[in-house]
Structure formats: structure tokens, C-alpha cells
């Protein structure tokens, strides 16, 4: 074991050369590549972190939007339900009103129908009663009845109010015509005279009478003085009853 100074010095030089070579061709390029790769990785990590933060921000934003939409949807749904409820109530009220109107209308129609039916029944009853009374009176009518009716007519004329009598008297000369006297049975001369005298007393004027027969009257007289028609016969009375009954029923 001996120390060679030449080897010693050359080894020092050799190692220093090796250090220079490795530093020049090995460490620096490798460190540069490693540094660049680390920078690249850090840049990518930073970009990834940035993207992650952006994604989280978007996620929060979308969640917020979703919550807003959900609240808005629930509010709109509640509003819609309120509107539907109000609309339903309004429609139900309108339907109730329409039903009430229909019901009232139906009741009115029913009442009218019943009144009409009742009126028709009354009318029919009156007509039947009239026919019955007419046939009964036709069989029961006679000169005695007609005499009574004549007296009744003259008494009724005498009991007319004064203003109507005055009106009747004014019509007499204006007509200039004879008083038409119709009877169901032929009048005797006495009865014709009684009628003429009665009329002259009531009308306080000279009266010309034209007597005729009308079996349709059943019994009694009918006087036509100008536009006035004065009746005291069964037919007119029956018609008058029927007219009065119809008028009463219409009211």
C-alpha cells in the first residue's frame, strides 16, 4: 500500500472533470426538465383547481337556480290552485245561480201551466155550465120568464144613474132610428106597448120601436139604441157570466 502522487492528482482532476461533465450534461438538463414538468403539473393542478372552483361555483349557482325555480314553481302552483279554487267557486256560484234561475223559471212555467190548465178547466167548466144552464133554461124558458125579464129590464133602465140616462137620451135623437127590440118569443101588442111606454118614460122622449124575434136569446129582450145594446135575456146573461168569469180568472 503506497500513495502515488501522480494517481492522486490525476484522480482529483478526473473527478472534477466528471463533476463538470455531469453538471453540464446531466444535472442541469434533468433539473430543467423536472422543473418544467413540475411547473406544468402545477399549472395543470392550478387549472384543475380553477376548473373545480368554477365547477363548484356553477354547481352552487345551479343549485340556487334550482331552488329559486322550485320556490317559483311552488308559488305558481299555489297561485294556480288558488285561481282554480276561486274559478271553481265562481263557476259553482254561477251554476247555482243558473240552477236557481232555471228552477224559478221552471216553477214559473209550472205555475203558468197550472194556471192555464186551471183556467182551461174553469173555461171548460164555465162553457159546460153555460151549455148546461142554456139547455136547462131553454127547456125552462117561457113567456112568463120573458115577461119577468122585460120588467127587470125596464126596472134596471129606470135605476140607471142619471148621467148614463142623460147619455142614453142624447143618443136617441142622434140616431134617428127606431129602437130595435128583439125577443125570444113573440110579443103581444100589450107587451109591446108596455115596452114602448116604459122606454118613453125613461128616455123622456117619443120612441119608435121595431120589434123582432130571436130565439137564440132563449128568453128575454135585447134593446139596441144607437150604439147602445141593452140586454135582459138569458143568452146575454149567460155570456156575461162567462165573460165575467174569464175576466176574473185572467186577473
Amino acid at each position: 500500500m503506497e500513495l502515488s502522487w501522480s494517481t492522486f492528482l490525476l484522480e482529483i482532476v478526473n473527478f472534477l472533470v466528471l463533476v463538470w461533465i455531469l453538471k453540464r450534461f446531466f444535472y442541469k438538463p434533468l433539473q430543467s426538465v423536472i422543473t418544467r414538468r413540475r411547473q406544468d403539473i402545477e399549472q395543470r393542478l392550478a387549472e384543475a383547481e380553477k376548473m373545480r372552483e368554477e365547477a363548484e361555483r356553477l354547481q352552487r349557482e345551479y343549485e340556487g337556480r334550482m331552488n329559486d325555480w322550485e320556490r317559483e314553481r311552488q308559488r305558481a302552483r299555489a297561485d294556480l290552485q288558488e285561481e282554480m279554487k276561486a274559478e271553481r267557486a265562481q263557476l259553482e256560484q254561477a251554476l247555482q245561480e243558473a240552477l236557481q234561475q232555471q228552477r224559478q223559471k221552471a216553477e214559473v212555467i209550472e205555475q203558468r201551466r197550472q194556471r192555464e190548465q186551471r183556467h182551461q178547466l174553469q173555461q171548460r167548466a164555465l162553457e159546460q155550465g153555460s151549455h148546461f144552464a142554456a139547455r136547462l133554461l131553454e127547456q125552462a124558458a117561457g113567456p112568463e120568464l120573458e115577461t119577468n125579464l122585460q120588467q127587470l129590464l125596464l126596472a134596471s133602465l129606470a135605476e140607471l144613474p142619471e148621467d148614463r140616462l142623460a147619455e142614453l137620451r142624447r143618443q136617441l135623437p142622434a140616431a134617428g132610428e127606431p129602437v130595435e127590440v128583439s125577443s125570444a118569443f113573440p110579443l103581444s101588442a100589450d107587451r109591446r106597448e108596455q115596452v114602448r111606454n116604459g122606454l118613453q118614460q125613461i128616455l123622456q122622449n117619443t120612441v119608435h120601436c121595431h120589434f123582432s124575434e130571436d130565439s137564440d136569446l132563449i128568453a128575454g129582450l135585447r134593446l139596441v139604441i144607437g150604439p147602445w145594446v141593452l140586454g135582459a135575456n138569458v143568452r146575454d146573461e149567460l155570456r156575461g157570466f162567462a165573460r165575467i168569469a174569464r175576466g176574473t180568472d185572467r186577473e
Binding site: S4, T7, F8, L9, E11, I12, F15
Partner: peptide, 15 residues
């Protein structure tokens, strides 16, 4: 091996 030479190891040690 160069390191079996004391001159080489001494050179490295001196360095």
C-alpha cells in the same frame, strides 16, 4: 476497481 487504490480514495477524501 479504482477505489481499491489508496491514491484514488485519498484523492476523493481530500476533495
Amino acid at each position: 476497481s479504482p477505489t481499491r487504490d489508496l491514491s484514488a480514495t485519498a484523492a476523493l477524501a481530500i476533495l
